[in-house]
Simulated assay, not measured.
Amino acid sequence: MCNLVPTVRALQRHWPEARLTWIIGKGEHSLLAGLSGVEFVVYDKSTGLAGMRALWQELADTRFDVLLHMQQSLRASLLSLGLKADVRVGYDKARAKDAQHWFTHRHLAPHPRAHVLESFLDFARLLGVEDLSLDWQLPIPAVAFDEARALSGEAPYLVINPCSSMRLRNFRNWSAEGYASVIEHAWVHHGLKTVLTGGSSTQERELGERIQALCRPDTVIDAIGGTSLKGLLALIQRARLLVAPDTGPVHMANALGTPALGLYATSNVDRAGPYLWRAFAVDRYPEAVRTYMHKAPEELSWGQRVRHPDAMSLIRAEDVIERLDALLVQSPVPQDTESRADEA
């Protein structure tokens, strides 16, 4: 979602009077609700065909000039069939998944080895938009900043979101011991407490508990399962730095201008890393490909993951600490972040 917003902003600059309708999931909507100039139509994925029919009925009297088919899934393609649109734009055949190109009229120009954010911008490029400067302006309400302050206090801090999403054969998470070393260094050398964030799943809570057991009690604030998505945005906006594996909060930080230190070994940082902070990521993907797949990275298809449980062990605590120090030196303490968010 965060990687897609710059495309929305580019379209708005090019056609300021255009009506933009975004069909979006419930969880994603809770993150982006209030995005200026966008009419959201919320689709509950759990409702299946009945939900699709309800959405089709809601938009029965609307005919779109262009439908940008930006979600690559068979469910999204089926949903698109019930929408009236003069032109349907999808990915080129090399990037299309789940036979998406069968459901669209026009296809993007090939763009090999593109970052996810650049792939979204390709939709604006096809429509003739030339100003592709990056702009997010994510809305964060005052109540979300109140939520963040109640958790973190007023002193500077960093955020660690230690877990990625729950998926089959998902080996993107780093070790509790590694995170504990980073937390200790941030406290001793920078005077920064760490706020742990994440969802309320058993996996996330258990990893958070293991991390805290290895740390001094006064150095960690446990916010795992304790924030709304808007509250998480506010926490990240106010933070000095965010550390996380390949997961949504690195892109939230990227969108908010907060330095993002990504930890990558199972996925390619050049495709899925925090766009503006890729140079600061700890990138062990090439090494993991050679070690566990016995291939050179260029032999893999773009975006192919390393599905090995030991891949993230290639990341060393000293590498993360080195990048953390470099980012903290170049990044000033955030000032008046709530005012800046309100202005945006």
Rank of each mutant, 00 (worst) to 15 (best):
F64G: 03
V66W: 15
L67T: 06
L68T: 01
L68A: 07
L68N: 04
H69Q: 14
M70F: 11
Q72I: 10
S73A: 10
R75C: 11
L81V: 12
G82L: 06
K84N: 14
D86Y: 09
V89M: 12
Y91H: 12
D92N: 11
D92S: 06
K93G: 10
A94I: 06
R95L: 09
A96Q: 03
D98F: 08
W102C: 15
R106E: 15
H107E: 10
L108V: 01
L108N: 00
A109V: 10
H115N: 07
E118R: 08
L121V: 04
L126E: 10
L126H: 10
L127Y: 00
L127D: 02
E130V: 06
D131H: 02
S133F: 07
S133M: 07
L134V: 12
L134P: 00
D135Q: 14
W136H: 12
Q137A: 13
Q137I: 00
L138S: 06
L138V: 09
L138M: 12
P139H: 08
I140A: 02
P141R: 02
P141G: 02
D146Q: 12
D146L: 05
R149D: 09
R149T: 14
L151C: 13
G153I: 03
A155Y: 06
P156W: 00
Y157T: 00
L158V: 10
I160V: 11
S164T: 09
S165M: 12
S165F: 07
S165D: 13
M166D: 15
R167P: 00
L168Y: 14
N170Y: 10
N170E: 15
N173W: 03
W174M: 03
A176Y: 01
Y179F: 13
A180H: 01
A180S: 05
S181K: 04
S181T: 03
S181R: 06
E184A: 14
H185Q: 10
A186R: 03
W187Q: 11
W187A: 15
G191Q: 06
K193M: 08
K193I: 07
T194E: 03
G198D: 02
G198Q: 02
G198L: 06
S201P: 00
S201K: 04
T202Y: 09
E204D: 10
E204V: 04
E206L: 15
I211L: 09
Q212S: 14
Q212W: 00
